[in-house]
Design a protein around this nucleic acid. Structure first.
Length: 263
DNA sequence: TGTGATGTTGAATG
DNA sequence: GCATTCAACATCAC
């Protein structure tokens, strides 16, 4: 679900909905996704606080509080935010909601409960401990290539590894491989440097283009990136390579070979 | 109605 | 100890 561009959208939504709003209370229906304390403790910690800023790193969104602590929001596969007032507008799978002083509520909706929410006193410590990599929109070419190193994993496995580069998920990874004509199962160490640089450049390009359009993943715009080609009946630009489906790095993957060359 | 899902993680293996 | 793979997680939507 939400990959870097989609989390960017959530960040914008969060900023507009929650910054400078005092939290009167937090309503918790199901604290399964609150990973480092129970729902009551979470609610107690937040009552009276105000969100003052936010920081996104990869797919992780850190919401900073006026006391220096922060709330980490990770949307898992089905996470979503919704601002509302009337009970009838409450999202169906809301797990908890921040209730603000102006009576607005920001609900965290998550059907599959794969989301992760933490109350953190030390954001940088958390990032370091978890080993979260540099954000994919911030990482330099030099660092990107160094992270690739002599790895024996696949290109796709590399792109999906959040401790190496943070932010690329299953769909954008396929898009990057398609655009660079690199088979997603190519071994990193066997992929020529020229191609690695291209992968870096296309990653930045794809993510930038996506972020600009602020995608909402439950309602993508028409012709959104992969929608044009990520179908089994599509033929690649070489007029002969059919798009096929399989598993790469444990994830459902689409590619067209030999249009996308395997190294 | 059985299957698959845009993510992370911890265990197992090399 | 590190790199890598893969099942498990929980539940919905098609």
């Amino acid at each position: 679900m939400p990959e870097l561009p989609e989390v960017h959208t959530f960040q914008q939504y969060f900023n507009a909905a929650a910054l400078q709003q005092q939290i009167m209370k937090v309503v918790v229906h199901d604290d399964k996704i609150i990973r480092n304390m129970d729902g009551n403790s979470f609610a107690d910690k937040l009552a009276g606080r105000t969100f003052v800023s936010s920081l996104r790193r990869g797919k992780y969104l850190f919401a900073d509080l006026d006391n220096g602590d922060c709330v980490l929001l990770h949307f898992g596969m089905t996470g979503d935010l919704k601002l509302y007032q009337e009970e009838e507008d409450r999202p169906r799978f809301e797990r908890f909601a921040f209730v603000f002083a102006d009576d607005n509520r920001l609900g965290f909706d998550d059907a599959r409960k794969f989301a992760h929410v933490h109350y953190l006193e030390d954001r940088d410590g958390y990032i370091a401990e978890k080993g979260l990599g540099t954000d994919a929109l911030v990482i330099s070419e030099e660092e990107f290539l160094a992270a690739m190193g002599k790895r024996k994993t696949s290109i796709k496995g590399f792109l999906l590894n959040q401790s190496l580069v943070a932010g690329v998920g299953n769909l954008y990874a396929d898009e990057i491989c398609y655009r660079t004509q690199v088979h997603p199962a190519s071994v990193v160490a066997k992929t020529p440097k020229r191609k690695r640089v291209e992968i870096y450049n296309k990653m930045i390009e794809v993510l930038h283009q996506a972020v600009e359009k602020a995608p909402y993943y439950k309602e993508y715009p028409e012709n959104w990136f992969w929608e044009e080609w990520r179908h089994l009946d599509h033929i690649a630009p070489d007029n002969k390579s059919k798009v096929q489906i399989g598993k790469v790095a444990g994830r459902t993957t689409y590619w067209a070979s030999p249009w996308q060359k395997k190294y």
